[in-house]
Computed example of a mutant assay.
Amino acid sequence: MWEISMEGLLSLIRKTTQSSLSYICEKTGDSLSNRMDELACFVLGMLALGSFSKFLIELAWTCYNFYQSTPTKLAGQNYYFNGGEDMNVGTSWNILRPETVASLMYLWWFTGNKTYQDWGRNIFQAFEKNCRINSGYVGLRDVKTGEKDNMMQSFFLAETL
């Protein structure tokens, strides 16, 4: 079942032409969309638990760049990869999701590679700078402008931190 699932996953992988970023297309019925939600970054942790491959490292780089590509250094909800071009923020809110951070923790744990720890620290510092308020943390309505929302999701403390 794992191998069949991985064949399906691999059929959804595309690369941008400019920076060679790997991403997972969204599939609805028979149509593919060159869009990837930040939520899909859980795949890193899943693959780290099940196997280790070059694709895993490439996808980690893409998910980390979801964060590095915005002025706030926080990822938007999803990204588009149109015509093989590099990513563009689709939905630009950030609600403090854990998927990339958790996956980076798994990668550091399995490999001992300090790079993944550094990437996690960079993301944490962006949360501290952009989302920290006196009573906790809030998400952002827009990762480009840094406009804050007024809610701390319950999963932030339990899963992201």
Results as ranks from 00 to 15, higher is better:
Asn94Cys: 12
Thr16Tyr: 05
Gln18Ser: 06
Thr115Trp: 10
Ser69Gly: 04
Lys129Phe: 04
Asn122Arg: 12
Cys41Ser: 09
Trp61Ser: 00
Tyr79His: 05
Gly76Leu: 00
Ile13Cys: 01
Ser11Asp: 09
Gln18Pro: 02
Leu96Gln: 02
Ala75Ile: 07
Val101Trp: 04
Tyr106Trp: 15
Leu74Lys: 03
Asn82Gln: 10
Leu74Met: 15
Asn122Gly: 14
Leu56Tyr: 03
Met151Tyr: 15
Pro98Leu: 15
Tyr64Ala: 06
Val43Ser: 08
Gly120Lys: 10
Ala126Val: 14
Gln18Trp: 09
Lys148Pro: 04
Trp108Asn: 13
Cys25Arg: 09
Asn134Thr: 13
Val138Phe: 12
Gly50Val: 03
Cys131Asn: 12
Lys129Leu: 12
Lys148Leu: 01
Thr28Asn: 08
Thr70Arg: 07
Gly112His: 11
Ile24Pro: 01
Trp119Phe: 13
Met46Asp: 02
Ser135Trp: 11
Gly139Gln: 04
Val43Phe: 06
Phe155His: 14
Tyr67Arg: 05
Phe66Asn: 02
Cys41Trp: 00
Gln77Asn: 15
Asn65His: 14
Leu56Val: 04
Asn82Cys: 03
Ala60Lys: 02
Lys54Arg: 10
Thr28Met: 05
Asn130Val: 08
Glu26Ile: 11
Thr72His: 05
Ser154Val: 14
Pro98Asp: 14
Ser53Leu: 07
Asn122Asp: 15
Thr62Arg: 01
Leu140Cys: 12
Leu10Val: 00
Lys114Gly: 11
Trp61Phe: 06
Glu38Cys: 01
Gly84Ser: 07
Ser11Phe: 05
Leu59Cys: 10
Asn34Val: 01
Leu74Arg: 06
Gly45Pro: 02
Leu21Arg: 03
Phe155Met: 09
Leu59Arg: 06
Thr28Val: 09
Ile123Gln: 06
Thr72Val: 09
Ser22Arg: 04
Arg14Phe: 10
Lys15Arg: 14
Gln125Gly: 02
Phe66Leu: 08
Leu12Ile: 07
Asn78Trp: 06
Leu104Met: 10
Phe55Ala: 00
Ser69Trp: 06
Ala126Trp: 06
Ile13Met: 08
Asp142Cys: 15
Gly136Lys: 13
Arg35Met: 06
Gln153Tyr: 12
Glu99Met: 11
Asn130Thr: 11
Asn82Pro: 11
Ser22Ile: 02
Gln117Trp: 10
Gly136Asn: 13
Ser69Leu: 08
Asp149Glu: 09
Glu147Leu: 10
Asn88Tyr: 13
Thr91Gly: 04
Lys148Phe: 00
Ser154Arg: 12
Leu12Tyr: 01
Glu38Asn: 09
Ile123Met: 13
Leu157Ala: 12
Leu32Glu: 09
Leu96Asn: 00
Tyr106His: 07
Val138Arg: 07
Met151Ser: 14
Asn130Met: 11
Phe127Met: 03
Gln125Thr: 10
Glu99Tyr: 11
Lys27Ser: 12
Ile57Gly: 00
Cys25Phe: 05
Val43Met: 11
Ser92His: 08
Gly50His: 08
Gly136Arg: 13
Leu140Lys: 02
Tyr80Cys: 04
Leu44Asn: 01
Ser19His: 06
Ser51Met: 13
Gln18His: 08
Asp142Lys: 13
Lys73His: 15
Arg14Ser: 15
Phe127Val: 02
Ser33Trp: 01
Leu56Met: 09
Tyr106Leu: 13
Leu59Asn: 06
Lys144Pro: 00
Asn113Arg: 13
Ser154Gln: 14
Tyr23Met: 00
Phe155Ser: 07
Ile57His: 05
Ser19Arg: 07
Thr17Phe: 03
Glu38Tyr: 07
